[in-house]
Write a protein that binds this DNA or RNA. Structure first.
Lengths: 207, 207
DNA sequence: TTACAGTTTAACAATTCAGTTAAATCAATT
DNA sequence: AATTGATTTAACTGAATTGTTAAACTGTAA
């Protein structure tokens, strides 16, 4: 049953390669040849493991979306106080995106071309995405009523948090040029950004 | 010289169609057939007007990037007081993106795949994009020194402004699902968002 | 040694797509 | 009526790409 490269090592290599190529180029521009080269094998073996380009893509895309959203869901449903929760969200997003720089542009581009995919994945995940916001909204309104937070629309706040954290990665090439940074410099700025965003939000929400 | 459809009407129709198709699908997934159908003509005429897909794309892309960045540049270099300038930026971005919803994801996706395009376009525009930030930084630091603004890194602030304004459009399908809105609802939320973001920033920057 | 799953090679079929071309048609101008 | 430029039709070429297949090879396990 087992071969020289033990067990599912090849499968793993293929998945990693597919991930890299799909994520960088998007579905339409990705070539099976690119993936096989990246994995260090030949095209025939690609189809031996995964029947078609579409099947491979579905696998990868599902995984990527999960990375992009699942951690967020856990934090959002946790029992931390609101400001700590916001801080956790920001740190989580930036940490994930430092490790997966092309993730958001890939996921969002493919979702834009095929929005109903989002619903399919959401159902698959068991919970409707709007629940994410429900609990958050309750908590925000509680703080406002308690006078510990300035009057703010929870949905707008949520978009602001996500935008501040995620957008620089989506606009990475533009940011690098405007800030005159290389990759290392960009990543430094993003690490500082964790604290920067949190402070920014805390001050913005002060009553 | 002139034909039934007077003058350059067809050329305009083609450019509009190309814009729509390229912007929605991206270069790799766009088909010349799609563009010709969208323009209400046939493929042969497409090549009669614009020699190749690449040439058409370059034209469109240049135009789109210009829409995306040029207005911003004007505002950034204007002589408004800083807070008014920030407000103008937010309102400008959201207004433009309400009219061109797919613009940012398209531009950013293509830039990610081909970052050196950014430099070419920047040179073509005559000014280095980092100049955008230079004047802004000076103004921010002046306010901080004058005690009218909380200590903040100008680059980080700039990214926050852009992120809050642009990101919801990039993540549009996700936002629509989380907020449970249709297109009209989404656009309403974005119109409200102009004021929301400005208020948010003003409070965040209070000393 | 044999058997077997993983892997390579190389060739192939089918499809899609960009781009070209020649001929016919159409509508406005002269 | 004749000319001219825009447009369509339809067929074609050539290249790229996905997917398939048969045969050979390789290393491990029984």
């Amino acid at each position: 049953m087992v071969n020289k490269k033990d067990d599912n090592q090849t499968e793993k290599a293929i998945l990693e390669a597919a991930d890299k190529v799909f994520t960088q180029k998007g579905f339409a521009a990705a070539r099976m040849e690119d993936i096989s080269k990246e994995a260090g094998i030949n095209r025939a073996l690609l189809h031996y493991y995964f029947r078609s380009k579409d099947k491979m893509f579905d696998l990868i895309f599902q995984q990527r979306v999960t990375i992009f959203f699942s951690g967020l869901g856990q934090i959002m449903h946790s029992e931390k106080p609101l400001l700590e929760k916001i801080q956790a969200i920001v740190e989580h997003e930036i940490t994930v995106l430092l490790a997966h720089p092309y993730l958001p542009i890939f996921v969002l581009q493919e979702l834009n071309q095929n929005p109903q995919r989002m619903l399919a994945i959401a159902e698959n995940a068991g919970a409707h995405p709007s629940l994410l916001l429900k609990k958050f909204s309750v908590e925000v309104r509680a703080e406002i009523k308690a006078g510990t937070m300035r009057e703010t629309d929870p949905a707008q706040l949520f978009m602001s948090i996500m935008g501040m954290a995620i957008y620089p990665f989506v606009a990475r090439p533009v940011v690098k040029i405007i800030l005159e940074k290389d990759d290392a410099g960009f990543e430094n700025v993003m690490r500082q950004r964790k604290k920067e965003i949190t402070d920014f939000i805390i001050h913005a929400l002060k009553p």
